[in-house]
């Protein structure tokens, strides 16, 4: 099977070494390019809240005209609310970013590993399904999905190697097909 060292890596080794099964081998490992990917669902939720915050801040800080009373509330609570919204926006933007070294990917002869160093080290593995759809999107490739809890809601999200460059994504596509075909025969 083809073996390849991806962007940002010197060798195929990594935090997944201790988790390999008997006979399982790493065939690709790499790290994503630096990228800011907006989470549109969060973005659209944040826009109205940010607009309201800005409106109140501007209206509150505005000097009242002569004879006009300031009808808007105090700056403090609004500033706290604005700070909270900006924190949410910043956190979601950071979490959607792909940062070289902080996120690392590996593909073995059986499954894929995704390692994230912050906020705490986390290594997740995903078996490559025989009939799993493979979704090639420019510089990213998705090959599984998972259920995650967000607040009180459960959401399904696509899992894959994000922002690894179009050439790398195409190479991974071929490797995933090799894995699927090998499992069938």
């Amino acid at each position: 099977m083809t073996r390849r060292v991806g962007y940002g890596e010197d060798a195929l080794g990594g935090p997944w070494d201790a988790k390999l099964r008997h006979g399982e081998e790493i065939i690709w490992s790499g790290t994503p390019r630096l990228g800011l990917a907006l989470d549109w669902h969060k973005f659209w939720a944040i826009v109205p809240a940010t607009a309201v915050c800005l409106f109140y801040l501007v209206a509150t800080l505005r000097e009242p005209s002569r004879g006009e009373e300031l009808a808007i509330g105090p700056v403090g609570p609004v500033a706290i609310f604005a700070g909270f919204v900006i924190y949410l926006a910043g956190y979601s933007a950071f979490y959607a970013m792909t940062i070289p070294g902080i996120i690392r990917y590996a593909l073995t002869t059986e499954r894929a590993f995704i390692y994230r160093a912050v906020p705490w080290p986390k290594l997740a593995d995903y078996d490559i399904g025989l009939t799993a759809p493979i979704d090639l999107q420019n510089a990213s490739i998705y090959f599984a999905d998972e259920t995650v809890r967000q607040g009180r809601k459960l959401r399904r999200r696509a899992v894959g190697f994000r922002n690894i460059s179009p050439a790398e994504a195409e190479a991974i596509h071929d490797m995933l097909r090799e894995i699927q075909q090998r499992a069938i025969t």
Binding site: T131, A132, P133, I134, D135, L136, N138
Partner: peptide, 28 residues
């Protein structure tokens, strides 16, 4: 941008055929 998604067709893939004009065929 461009996206390419492939779906393996297996013996247990459920096919849903809507024989309208034009027709639709769902497999995933």
């Amino acid at each position: 941008g461009r996206k390419l998604k492939s779906y393996p067709i297996a013996s247990d893939t459920v096919l849903e055929f809507e024989n309208n004009t034009p027709a639709s065929l769902f497999f995933h």
